[in-house]
Simulated assay, not measured.
Amino acid sequence: MKFSAREDIEAPIEFVFAQVTDFQALERSALRRGAEVQRVDGNSEPGVGMAWDVSFKLRGKMRELKTELTRLDAPNSVVLSSRSKAMGGHMVVDLVALSRGRTRMSMDLELKPINLSSRLLVQSLKLARGNLTGRYKLRIADFARDIEDRYTRKG
C-alpha cells in the first residue's frame, strides 16, 4: 500500500533539506504525538545508518518498529526504511528546487505486509484508503507550512 503527497514550499531547497533532516526535532514531534522514540545507533553525526526503535498505538494495539536512515543525498533526497515483525516499508522524501526560493517536496510512504495478519491489516486500511490518503496529505501539508513558517521567521 502506498501513500503519496507533494507540496510546494516557499523556501530554498537547502533550508527545506535541513528541516527534513532535523531528526531531533522530528523525534520530539513524534513524542508529542504519543509515540515512543529511542535512538539506537552510535553515530555522532547525522548520516546513513542512523536508527531508531519506535513504538506507537495503531488501531488499539501497540506497534513496534525499527527505522533506519538508508539514503541521504543532500539536498535532494532522504530514504528511511522501517521493519517490524509483521510489516516492512519505506519513506522516500524527494526535494526539487523550482526556483531559488521555492522547493517541491514529495513524500512517498509504502507499507509491505510480511505475514497473514499484516496482510489483513493492510487490506482493512485499503478499505479506508480515501480517508487515510486525505489525512496523510493534510499532515504533509501541515509539515510544509511549518517549514515555510520557520523560514519566514528566520528571514
Rank of each mutant, 00 (worst) to 15 (best):
Ser106Cys: 10
Asp94Pro: 03
Ala97Asp: 09
Gly155Asp: 09
Ile140Glu: 05
Val78Glu: 12
Val16Met: 04
Arg150Asp: 10
Arg28Ala: 15
Asp73Trp: 04
Arg6Asp: 01
Ala86Thr: 15
Leu26Cys: 08
Ala51Asn: 01
Leu120Arg: 09
Leu80Arg: 07
Arg63Pro: 05
Met1Trp: 00
Ala141Leu: 02
Ala97Thr: 05
Val78Asp: 06
Lys66Gln: 12
Thr103Asp: 04
Arg150Ile: 04
Ala141Phe: 08
Arg102Phe: 04
Gly49Met: 08
Glu14Gln: 09
Met62Tyr: 12
Lys61Gly: 01
Ala11Thr: 00
Ser117Glu: 07
Ala74Asn: 11
Ser55Arg: 13
Arg63Ile: 13
Thr70Pro: 00
Gly101His: 15
Gly49Pro: 07
Val122Ala: 07
Arg119Thr: 04
Leu31Met: 10
Lys85Trp: 14
Asp53Gly: 01
Lys154Phe: 03
Gly47Gln: 06
Glu64Thr: 13
Asp8Trp: 05
Asp73Asn: 08
Pro75Asn: 02
Ala35Pro: 07
Asn131Leu: 15
Ile9Tyr: 04
Met62Glu: 14
Asp149Ala: 10
Ser29Pro: 00
Arg100Val: 00
Ala97Gln: 03
Leu116Thr: 13
Arg153Ile: 10
Asp73Ala: 13
Gly130Arg: 14
Met50Gln: 10
Ser118Gly: 01
Val96Cys: 04
Arg135Val: 10
Ala25Glu: 06
Arg33Pro: 00
Ser55Phe: 12
Ala30Leu: 15
Ser4Ala: 13
Val37Thr: 04
Leu121Trp: 01
Ser29Asn: 04
Lys2Cys: 00
Asp41Gly: 07
Arg139Val: 12
Glu148Lys: 03
Leu58Glu: 13
Leu58Lys: 13
Leu125Ser: 01
Val122Tyr: 08
Leu138Val: 09
Arg102Trp: 02
Met50Val: 01
Met107Cys: 08
Glu45Ser: 07
Leu58Pro: 10
Ala35Gly: 06
Gly60Gln: 05
Arg33Asn: 08
Arg33Val: 02
Gln38Gly: 02
Leu98Asn: 07
Leu80Tyr: 03
Ser44Ile: 05
Phe56Tyr: 12
Arg139Glu: 15
Ser29Ile: 05
Arg33Met: 05
Val37Arg: 08
Ala35Phe: 03
Thr152Ile: 14
Tyr151Ile: 08
Glu64Lys: 15
Tyr136Val: 07
Arg119Pro: 01
Arg145Lys: 11
Ser77Glu: 09
Ala141Tyr: 07
Trp52Ser: 03
Leu127Val: 06
Leu116Asn: 12
Ser77Ile: 03
Val16Tyr: 08
Ile9Thr: 05
Leu138Trp: 09
Leu58Tyr: 14
Arg104Trp: 06
Val79Cys: 11
Leu80His: 05
Leu109Thr: 12
Gly42Cys: 03
Pro12Ile: 10
Ala141Asp: 08
Thr21Gln: 13
Thr152His: 08
Gly42Ala: 08
Lys137His: 11
Ser55Pro: 09
Ser81Arg: 12
Phe143Met: 01
Ser117Lys: 04
Ala144Gln: 03
Leu138Asp: 12
Arg32Ala: 12
Gln19Asp: 08
Ala51Glu: 03
Arg139Phe: 12
Lys137Asn: 07
Gln123Ala: 15
Glu68Asn: 02
Phe3Lys: 01
Glu10Cys: 06
Asp149Met: 10
Arg102Tyr: 06
Ala128Lys: 09
Lys61Gln: 11
Leu65Pro: 10
Val122Leu: 03
Arg129Thr: 02
Ser29Arg: 14
Ser106Trp: 05
Leu69Thr: 08
Ala144Asn: 02
Gly88Lys: 15
